[in-house]
């Protein structure tokens, strides 16, 4: 289903300065039984965010008032490792993030994120440090993510880096397409192809 288009985003940050965050931490296995894709945001980082009695842990970044409403998640190295569950990407999107920044993403997570309209931006370890330093200095620090130019900038300092993205996925995000929307946009070509074939094979 079509998702919203993505071109440029300027937003505050939610810093989760932890390396090797695996998908079991992002969304614990006990939440995988649901049959729809909605509602997983509620349990994003559940075991870090909530006490056993369901109350919020005061010190976890997602619970801090100063970061509420920010749409860019910035995490430590090797984000999204472990289980292939697509629910990890669903939970981050459902919570309200549009972009996740790290110095490395696990392959499967990266694919799942892109298929669900979440942009994973991989930066150098040095740039990641600069982002964390910027938000530690000023909790309102903002990042500017420009998909067309494939750049990410720390607004306050103007420092920026370029990032890579698969050309196909870039087009999908820019147009708010998912795979099916993309193929259906080629319907005239499909019909022409069908007419050009003498047989059904």
């Amino acid at each position: 289903m079509s998702k919203k288009t993505f071109s440029k985003l300027v937003s505050g940050i939610v810093p989760v300065q932890i390396d090797n965050i695996d998908t079991d931490q992002i969304i614990p296995a006990r939440f995988l039984k649901a049959t729809t894709r909605e509602g997983f945001g509620e349990n994003l980082f559940c075991d870090w965010r909530k006490n056993a009695d369901g109350t919020e842990k005061a010190d976890f970044p997602l619970n801090l008032a100063k970061y509420k409403g920010n749409r860019i998640l910035v995490a430590g190295n090797n984000f999204g490792c472990g289980s292939s569950r697509e629910h990890a990407a669903w939970s981050i999107v459902d919570y309200g993030f549009d972009v996740v920044v790290s110095s490395f993403f696990a392959d499967i997570f990266k694919g799942n994120a892109l298929n669900n309209g979440l942009l994973p931006v991989q930066v150098s370890p040095a740039f990641l440090e600069k982002i964390f330093a910027a938000v530690n200095k000023d909790e309102k620090a903002q990042l500017e993510v420009n998909l067309e130019e494939q750049s990410i900038k720390i607004v306050a300092t103007g420092e920026f880096e370029k990032f890579d993205i698969n050309a196909y996925k870039k087009m999908c995000l820019s147009n708010g397409f998912d795979d099916i929307d993309y193929i259906l946009s080629l319907k005239p070509q499909i019909e022409t192809y069908e007419k050009s074939r003498a047989f059904n094979f």
């Binding site: 698969n166 050309a167 196909y168 193929i183 080629l186 070509q189 499909i190 192809y193 069908e194 074939r197």
Partner: peptide, 15 residues
Amino acid sequence: VVHKQEGFPDVLYIN
């Protein structure tokens, strides 16, 4: 191949 584009996966027709 119904459609081919550099950097994109091929769109393959299924019989």
